[in-house]
Amino acid sequence: MQPPAAGTLRILHLSDTHLTGDGALHQGSVDTTAALDAVLAHVDGVPGVGLVVVSGDVSEDGSPESYRSVRERVGGWAERHGAAFVVVPGNHDQREGFRQVFANGHVLGEGGHPLAHTMEYLPPSVPVSGRTTVAGFRVVTVDTSVPGAGYGEVSETALERLRAALTGDPVPNGTIVVLHHPPLPSPTLLHEALRLQNPEDLAEVLAGSDVRVVLGGHQHHHAAGTLAGVPVLVAPAVANDTDVVGPYDEESAHVAAGALVVDVAADGSVWSTPVRVPRPDSDPLAFVLDAETVARIARQAGPGLR
């Protein structure tokens, strides 16, 4: 992959890792720890990543052990690459266990340096929220989880915190919002029932703001749309891939894992590249062109011939 352009923040966007504290298989079929390791290994050569996000359903069981495993794996990847690391809860997460390991979800700052947090107890009824600045961008996390429910909601508390963040001290390059339940229609009946219930309230806060992109997960499949004129990007899941073209009133998923590489430029332009992790047992290479061959084809078919 080509390096990011100058002044661009490159984001590795992961979602729905669904790790378990005891190593139990997700839905009885997927070793999500192994799937996460495979994703991280596959993207290890992506250059210039400045921020890593996990947009919810970090854990399947809410155990501190599962969160520590994600902290070790994804946080370790971010530290090695000199990237910031931000996490937000999803509907499968438990705020108490989440906070024990991730505090407010802003784990590493710019350059991959650990961030300090005050040891303040907050009850599970209080949404997790935080903000940090990376490469001139303000990164704000919004907790859309509803304790005990699968659907999402941006509570009044979360909305007020987002408003306060967006009206605070200005940043040079604008804001990136990370949440779990995307403010977009869902491709299946089950995910539609579990969608964000009040996207219009979020739209009201985003309208006219400096938000460049909203990053979400939850649907276990890549999607893109807009809300209040702001791009919304949904990352593929680490755990599995929803069959979005099957019967609407049924739900099935394939064993597959992926991520997004998102570039956000200082002028607000956004470029998203989905990354699918190939399965060695079922995804044979169609072809391989070495550098010399690529250069020859580029010379022959590129604009240099004009």
Rank of each mutant, 00 (worst) to 15 (best):
D93L: 10
L36D: 00
H113A: 14
R71G: 07
A38D: 12
V39D: 01
P127L: 00
H106G: 09
T133N: 12
R95D: 08
G48D: 13
V107C: 08
H117K: 08
G45V: 03
V86N: 05
T33E: 10
G75M: 02
G109Y: 02
V107Q: 10
L115F: 08
H117F: 01
A135K: 12
G109Q: 06
A116S: 14
A116R: 15
P123F: 03
R99D: 05
L115V: 14
S125D: 13
H106E: 08
V101W: 00
V74W: 06
G105E: 00
R71Q: 13
A78Q: 08
H92A: 07
E65M: 09
F98W: 12
L51N: 06
P47M: 00
F102S: 07
D93I: 09
G109L: 02
A38S: 12
M119Y: 10
E96T: 13
V126D: 11
L122C: 07
D93F: 07
F85K: 15
E60G: 11
N91T: 15
V128M: 07
R99V: 03
E65D: 09
H117V: 01
Q100E: 13
G105Q: 04
S63K: 11
H113Y: 02
G111C: 12
M119S: 14
A116L: 11
T132Q: 13
R80G: 10
A34V: 13
V70T: 14
S66P: 11
M119D: 12
R131Y: 03
D31C: 09
V30S: 07
V74D: 09
S63H: 06
S59T: 10
S59L: 05
G50V: 04
A84M: 04
S69V: 06
S55Y: 04
Q94A: 13
D61K: 10
G56H: 05
P124G: 05
V140S: 11
V54C: 08
V43G: 03
V43F: 00
Q94L: 14
T118K: 11
A34D: 15
A78P: 10
G45Y: 02
S125E: 15
T118M: 09
G136L: 00
V43N: 04
H113R: 11
T33D: 14
F85Y: 14
V53W: 00
P127W: 00
V54A: 04
N91E: 10
P124A: 05
Q100R: 10
D44G: 12
V107P: 07
A78W: 01
